[in-house]
Design a protein around this nucleic acid. Structure first.
Lengths: 204, 204
DNA sequence: ATAAAAATCGACACCGTGTAGACTTTTTTC
DNA sequence: GAAAAAAGTCTACACGGTGTCGATTTTTAT
């Protein structure tokens, strides 16, 4: 975790396999875009990465494992970005900042994010990854709601429950919009912002 | 469509195949609950319905077709229920009535509804079925919002766009809750009601 | 009763998966 | 820089699920 372990000499202490691994994940992402999860075969991925099926199984035990690794790589990115987001005291500003960031994430990683959502049910490790990601968002939304004066508590009309519903609204709305176009994503963002602000009592 | 064609004699003019078809769909639903879509095999369904794989292919061309038929049967039910819902003039009442109905639907058909959502991407006919269903809900929500004074128009903070976002919020929230318990569904309903009412301007 | 239509079966060919064992390349160690 | 170990790669195979075909039996209509 802390690591990086800058190679003692000045040349790459990078295993050949590390390069292959990245090639596999990149190919997987490309194929996901071109053919979709179902149609994509282990042979396809191997071929795209310039090796045979047999060799691929040296790295990953199944198609699911490959995709899980891809999702993990992407989701790592999301967490990174969340951590780096500037804190602000004004709830209104927090909402627009959060949604702007979300638009960026979906623009860059929409495909993998949609795949993660689709596979959450069937591939448990992906489900956990995505649940954790959602929890981060929910926590962030909860914080904003509370700062805006929505009471904390377990009741269905208090911050945590509302944050969960708003999170699902955003997830699903962006999920659909990201299949359409950048503009759709932009509008989706505006709509979500409006509902979020209204339900936080921040709109007269 | 109008039909029924009450059998001339007093015996069933019901093809043997009609019974089998129902048996297949019922078995499919049971297996979906027990093993999930991926794990369920055409052989399993056939066996459960008391026939061989070969015979099943006489009725349906693939596992996807079977599930599509099951979704169609269920969705038919949803449309039916929507049509029979009493019209009311008070928006507040309309919201609670709509959500009460939604809770009932998810209680009864949660499994198939979740399956339909999961397969919307990969099985186009199911995608169409579900899109159409969603459109009905969106139209209903739009109507309530407009009656509550939210302006009509294509802008992201006007009725149609908001209705879409609210629909996705409800879908996703209920999707998750229906995996938990009846109580979760009940609370989900309360939270959605609160956000819906607030964003319609119906909560002081 | 008989002919047509509907339903069922078993066998087969195909395709994707995952594993095993032999072989080659890269890295480490002395 | 040679030998040993580790990492990487390949081909071949066995398995399981799919969808199709032609033969056969059962049901329905006349």
């Amino acid at each position: 975790m802390p690591g990086h372990q800058p190679p003692r000499g000045r040349r790459p202490a990078e295993r050949k396999g590390d390069v292959r691994e990245r090639a596999i994940l990149d190919t997987c992402e490309a194929l996901l875009a071109r053919k979709g999860y179902e149609a994509m075969t282990v042979g396809d991925i191997a071929q795209g990465a310039g090796i045979t099926r047999g060799a691929l199984y040296f790295y990953y035990g199944s198609k699911q494992e490959v995709v899980t690794a891809l999702v993990a790589r992407t989701v790592e990115h999301l967490w990174e970005r969340s951590r780096l987001t500037a804190r602000t005291d004004d709830p209104r500003e927090a909402v627009t900042a959060a949604l702007r960031r979300t638009v960026e994430l979906w623009n860059e990683h929409g495909l993998v994010m949609r795949t993660a959502i689709d596979l959450s049910l069937t591939v448990p490790p992906i489900g956990e990854l995505w649940d954790h990601t959602a929890d981060l968002f929910i926590a962030a939304i909860t914080a904003v709601l509370e700062r805006a004066g929505v009471p904390t508590g377990a009741a269905p009309d208090q911050a945590p429950a509302m944050a969960r519903a708003l999170c699902w609204m955003i997830e699903r709305t962006f999920y659909h919009a990201s299949q359409e176009s950048r503009e759709a994503l932009q509008e989706a963002s505006a709509t979500c912002a409006h509902i979020w602000l209204t339900s936080a009592g921040l709109v007269a």
